[in-house]
Write a protein that binds this DNA or RNA. Structure first.
Length: 458
RNA sequence: GCAUCGGUGCCCGAGCGGACCAAGGGAACGGCCUGCAAAGCCGUAAAGCCGCGGGUUCAAAUCCCGCCCGGUGCUCCA
């Protein structure tokens, strides 16, 4: 039985989908006003893994994740760069998708943009106004928090407690009846993009888009809503308020991933400052980041730094070496080992226990290597099949650098390897070692096997 | 201040009342294999009284109380 820690209740609860056998998942995507950062990667990886696992478990999944392409930051940034909002948003959306692709993150089934959903947002706002859950002022339309006694359930705070902190970071808008109230619709200011509405020209407030899109695309009472845990308040709390204010069933499971820490100057200095995801992906195999994320539970705050990435890369190297080894071992086709698969499944079923699931894979790797060593082909084949299957469930493709492109220096290296083999056969180890040394300094690692010598880039 | 998540070996990091499992990964050391390596396998580490102090229990890293430390949130940040 699959279960998740639900941010609303704070408990692990069984996943009970609205429609048996199906799963509807929505998670908050980026506001595209800048390059993707490590936090985007972690969060998106977390939900990629969730969706992959749901599918593998047999659920028919519909996933949706938004692109917020209009908001204050986009407007400000476009003005700074003397660009336009659509151009800026399109550029950073492209960067986001490209880098997620590098991370082998599957595209969500639906990727709605906020600007394409203004009409639906206006409908939600109008509904809230009709129900007197919202009121209008000169500066826009606001949600009336005091009309919803449940407000604060997701952050686990009462409205009174929340009021104490309200306004701590931003000036309280005088138009608001209550400091907790938040904008559903913002009246247009000079020079800002705007849309017509029953309340005059303006643009949507922040939280309204996700409500309009998730309910529209996935339907009332959809299954899972997620995002980074920094979104719990105010974003998700307010989304929930809007949906409940319309008396529409919202998400039944709330799943939030923990934040990424980049341990201050230590890493950025020694590594020439990677603060963006792009910098990281230039220096490390994207799969190393995925593995690192997998080795930490999704709810926990994690540190991403050059040392932990190096460790993950080394672990990944072990998996790749293994994949290459089984590729050369010419094993008979085989089904995965049911016992190992079951251990993997129970790890994942328990709130997506990817660290334990990865441990199951590494255990299988060791067992498979041992089986190969003792020439137990049947056992090795089953375990090898298990490893590649389970790794792919987690979105990890294994095998020599994952690259299919032929090495440009292959011919030359092959020739040197052949020379060395000849020298070895002749007993001229000094010559053989000198060739090997030459290759090593070029980053080529040789491996002598009973079947001959192979090489790979270290 | 309030809310919330956490403090486990050299490093990362599982664990959610009870099994000689404190997982798995990285690093280190020893052994096997190898002409020597690499890869792989086997093993080891006075390496932690699982942040500190109490408590509950036949039994606690795991539950409760207090304290210390860190992350995040407290209006637009995944």
């Amino acid at each position: 039985m699959l279960r998740f820690t639900d941010s609303l209740t704070g408990d692990k609860t069984d996943f009970v989908p609205r429609d048996p056998g199906k799963a509807s998942v929505y998670w908050c995507g980026p506001t595209v006003y800048d390059l993707p950062h490590l936090g985007h990667a972690r969060s998106t990886l977390a939900f990629d893994i969730l969706v992959r696992y749901l599918r593998w478990s047999g659920y028919e999944v519909c996933s949706a994740s938004n692109i917020t392409d209009i908001d204050d930051k986009i407007i400000a940034r476009a003005a700074e760069e003397d660009s336009t909002e659509p151009e800026l948003a399109a550029r950073f959306e492209r960067a986001f998708i490209d880098q997620m692709d590098l991370l082998n993150i599957a595209h969500p089934d639906l990727r709605p943009r906020a600007t394409e959903y203004v009409e639906q947002m206006i409908a939600v706002v109008a509904d809230l106004v009709d129900r007197e859950m919202a009121y209008t002022t000169d500066s826009g339309v606001y949600f009336a928090v005091d009309r919803l006694p449940e407000y604060g359930a997701l952050v686990h705070r009462s409205p009174e407690e929340l009021r104490e902190g309200a306004g701590a970071r931003v000036d309280v808008d005088d138009d608001k009846a209550d400091p907790l109230d938040f904008a559903l619709w913002k009246a247009a200011k000079e020079g800002e993009p705007s849309w017509d509405s029953p309340w005059g020209p303006g643009r949507p407030g922040w939280h309204i888009e996700c409500v309009a899109m998730s309910l529209d695309l996935l339907g009332d009472g959809f299954d899972i809503h997620g995002g980074g845990d920094d979104l719990i308040f105010p974003h998700h709390e307010n989304e929930r308020a809007e949906a409940l204010g319309c008396e529409r069933a919202f998400a039944t499971h709330w799943v939030h991933n923990g934040m990424v820490q980049v341990g201050g100057e230590k890493m950025s200095k020694s590594l020439g400052n990677f603060t963006t995801l792009g910098d990281l992906l230039e220096a490390w195999d994207p799969r190393a980041l995925r593995l690192l994320v997998l080795q930490t539970h999704y709810r926990r705050t994690m540190e991403i730094g050059s040392d932990t990435l190096d460790q993950a890369a080394a672990a990944l190297g072990r998996l790749d070496t293994f994949a290459d080894r089984i590729g050369q071992a010419d094993l008979p086709p085989s089904e995965p080992d049911p016992g190992v698969v079951e251990r993997f499944r129970s790890a994942m079923d328990d709130d997506l226990g990817t660290p334990a699931a990865v441990a199951v894979i590494f255990d299988a790797v060791r067992d498979a290597n041992r089986a190969i060593d003792i020439e137990d082909e049947t056992g090795a084949a089953a375990l090898a099949s298990t490893v590649t299957t389970l790794a792919s469930v987690l979105g990890l493709g294994l095998g020599s650098r994952g690259s299919s492109a032929p090495d440009p220096e292959a011919t030359e290296i092959d020739a040197m390897v052949a020379d060395r083999s000849a020298a070895k056969a002749a007993g001229d180890y000094a010559q053989a070692d000198s060739i090997r040394e030459a290759l090593t300094t070029r980053g080529i690692q040789l491996e002598d096997t009973p079947a001959g010598t192979t090489w790979r880039r270290a």
